[in-house]
Amino acid sequence: MLPIIEFDGLTVSLGGREILHGLSGALRGKAIGLLGPNGAGKSTFINTLLGFHKPSKGTVRVHGRDVCNEAMAVRRTIGYMPENEAFIAGMSGVRFVRYMAELAGLPPEEALERTHEAFFYVGLGEARYRKLGTYSLGMKQLAKLAQAIAHGPNLLLLDEPTNGLDPPARLRMLQLIREIRDTPGMNLVLSSHLLHDVEECCDEVLILNDGCIAALCNLEEERKANRKFLELETTGDENAFAEAAERMGCECALFSRGRMKIVLPHEIELRQIYQLASEKGVQIRRMNHRRDSLEDIFLRAMEEPMTARSAQAR
């Protein structure tokens, strides 16, 4: 399958400073999450996909097309929802979105019809004739989504779409993103600080840290393959207990006041941990049993450089 986004040795320098350092990888997911702390290079990556920044080295391709050499063809297939407020002053919602759709190449009548559809789809049907300046923050986010989808793109780039939304509006936005994702032939890139948003909507995640790839993984496969975790609070000789657990094949990390974290291999059952605790005379006061989450993947990625896992994902 042709990757949605493919980048090879992608280096982007802005203002004499290198922001992205030779990124290489291929993204094939239906919904790709773009994660990273502030200044990691997420927005630079999205801007490079849009052709706003030219790579100083390397290439980036969208749907097999080079972003630098075939910028217009690439942009024809893209819908972009920017992070910050971006509007045309003094326009009503419907006129703004129609205008954007016409600029994308839709004939005026088609643009108008699809504008109405987009407004009803995002839930702003009743407010579509109001001036954009009178919209609330949540409505503005939805209007930005409407302008990104009105021309029917194949790839949607969403930069922090849930920024500033209250919980119901955020849920609505995530639901819309999932619906769009499930449309056949549709892909989206979701850049967000909120791990939960990415976890809910995405099946692949690219984690950037300081302009480098910290992790590039398929979330579904990660979830299936990920090990089980035990978070324990114990009293007794926890050192002896941890050593015995490690001899069984577990990975243990000890913290203060008897707290420990155990990573269970697939073949070890929970019952064996109870038996071991009993043998070592350790009381288990609290046990939290869970699987690896995106948060764990993210935190691990922030601690270690690009591992074999990301290379494998390529």
Partner: peptide, 23 residues
């Protein structure tokens, strides 16, 4: 008018590139 409340991709005709600035 009743509008479709689903996301649809657009595969219809496009205006010529040279005329876009006139929009």
């Amino acid at each position: 008018a009743v509008y479709k409340r689903t996301y649809r991709r657009y595969d219809g005709p496009l205006t010529p590139q040279w005329s876009r600035f006139l929009v």
